[in-house]
Amino acid sequence: MLALLPLLGVWVLAIISPGPDFVVTVQYASARSRRHGVAVGLGVSCAILVWAVGSLLGLAVLFARVSWLYDVVRLAGAAYLLYLGVRTLWSTRGAAPAADPGPARAGGRPGGLVRAWRVGFLTNIGNPKAAVFFGSLFSALLPVDAGVGLRAAAVALMVAVAVVWFTVVATVFGLDPVARAYARTRRWIDRVMGAVLVALAGRLAFER
């Protein structure tokens, strides 16, 4: 397991770097509830599992050889981020919401939690750069003679780190004081988050 420490160190720095996954987790935890934020984080983590396993199976090589497939996933991911950003911006039109978060934050209906999970999963799975990132990470930091067991342990630990990180983020931004502060300035925060998501969509669409 000591052989995995360099890989985990790089992964921790990568996972805590703000990006679309962080933005949607914060948004759902602040606007809805901690449980919704955790559900988003679990969706992101499941997508990370898909990308990590796919990279070990040669997905990055497939994307390199079939460039149109990479572009399809990239543009679909950009379109989804654009949709989230525009929807968030659209929600800020009209009268400002009341400052009290109210019963909308009192727990989470199963359907709402499933939708939150789906948002997290689609946000991450729509970025094919993840396959390239994981492929580079594994080739550079996994021992050359790493067996199936060590590779599986690496993936499991990386997913566990992602789950812990996004649970912490959702817990912090789902706290009542944070939620009340969000409610008081919701329109402006949502405008900033929406603009960030639109900008991230543009970057994903135009950067290869």
Rank of each mutant, 00 (worst) to 15 (best):
V114M: 04
A140M: 13
R34I: 05
R191A: 09
T171K: 03
G111D: 01
L8V: 03
L57G: 10
L5I: 13
V72N: 15
V40C: 00
M1K: 12
M158A: 00
A116V: 00
A199M: 08
S136V: 05
L82R: 07
S30K: 02
V155N: 03
G85S: 04
A205C: 10
V86Y: 14
F63K: 14
V196I: 06
R187T: 08
R151H: 10
V10L: 11
S136G: 13
A160L: 14
A146V: 03
V26S: 02
L59H: 12
V161R: 01
V198W: 04
A14P: 06
Y28L: 01
S55A: 02
T25W: 02
F138G: 04
D145I: 09
F166P: 15
F63P: 11
R115L: 07
D190Y: 10
L69C: 06
V86Q: 10
L62M: 11
G112K: 05
L42K: 05
V23Q: 03
A47N: 01
R74N: 09
L113E: 10
L204Q: 02
L56K: 08
L137N: 07
L137K: 09
G120W: 07
G202S: 11
G147V: 01
L81F: 02
V66K: 13
G135R: 11
R105W: 15
I48T: 08
V72Q: 05
R151T: 14
A60C: 08
F133H: 00
R184I: 06
G9S: 05
F206C: 09
V24C: 00
N127D: 15
G102M: 03
F133Y: 05
R203M: 13
W188D: 07
A52G: 05
V10T: 07
L75M: 10
L113N: 11
W90M: 06
V72G: 08
V24Y: 04
A156P: 09
W51L: 01
S45E: 04
V178N: 08
A76M: 04
W68L: 08
P18T: 12
R184N: 06
A52D: 01
G126A: 13
F206A: 10
V148P: 02
G174K: 14
L69W: 12
V44F: 00
L81A: 04
L13D: 04
Y80Q: 02
R186N: 03
P6G: 13
V10E: 04
G194I: 01
A78V: 05
V155G: 03
L142D: 08
V155R: 01
G94N: 12
N124K: 09
R74P: 08
A98Y: 10
D145E: 15
F133G: 00
P143W: 14
F22I: 00
W117G: 12
L200K: 11
D190P: 08
N124Y: 07
A154F: 15
Y28Q: 05
Q27P: 02
A181N: 12
G107I: 10
P143C: 07
